[in-house]
Amino acid sequence: MLSVENLSITFSMYDRGLAQKQLTVITDLALDVQAGEVMAIVGASGSGKSLLAHAILGILPDNAKVSGSIWFKGDLLTPQRSSQLRGKAIALIPQSIGYLDPLMQVGRQVQRTAQLSGLSASDAKAAVNRTFDRYGLAAAVQRLYPFQLSGGMARRVLVATAVVAQAELVIADEPTPGLHPDVVAETLSHLSQLASEGKGVILITHDIEAALQIADRVAVFYAGTTVEITPASDFYSGKIRHPYTQALWRALPQNDFIAVAGSQPSPDALPNGCLFSERCAGVTAECRSERPAFRQVRGAPVRCIHAAR
């Protein structure tokens, strides 16, 4: 359904005075999402998760230069095409109700989304009722303003906004931080329901635990590239391949709670070789000389020359 190939995003920034410098924040990123699956994107902040979403939605700022290609349903996704599909075939579930219009009743906002996607006013009204009903939101909720919603209700309204437009690809950007476990579980179950209806779902999160609850596959991002795309079950069976993925898993409080020292390399000082080489325990001279390409290890792609078969 969606396939991202060799995506690189470079920002031109002003260094000092008039000199411009190029900051490559995403390098050779790859990802593919099938209809009916939840693809989780996991990584630290600054690893390029949100930027990828912006690139898919075509909302990068003007000083971003993009190379590589994004394909959606067999056709190249140009900025023009993504602006046509945005909110219709491709929908975003934002982080918080801060993305809703604070001065408009939520029912009307959802209805407007439906109408913008091409439904007539009466069809849109019916779709809104159906969607609210589906997520257990009473009809009275439609007349509330965003600030009157409780945390759980707000999440359901945000999901409803994305779903009412009959999107085929749903991108959820950090839908769960700081929420109570029950609300997290509920939000996640909505996402996995969408996938079981045949939609493609991208779940962007820093929270591996949340991702593993519903994801079919997990793409792990580090410093703007995909280091591994693994079936979610490999985490539990100990089959994960990349040292960074293993580090993330080990660092969970319910596992070993051990951290790898240091921090992600900054975009203006990326190492020449493997992006994780500076923090990797198993680093060798070869790691530092060249960026590793994807190789298939135990049935899934990983960017590490040492990952054992």
């Binding site: 996991v42 902040s45 931080p177």
Partner: peptide, 13 residues
Amino acid sequence: AMLDANTQALIWH
């Protein structure tokens, strides 16, 4: 709450 598992463990340690 907003950080990845590795950074979380690092800061807490």
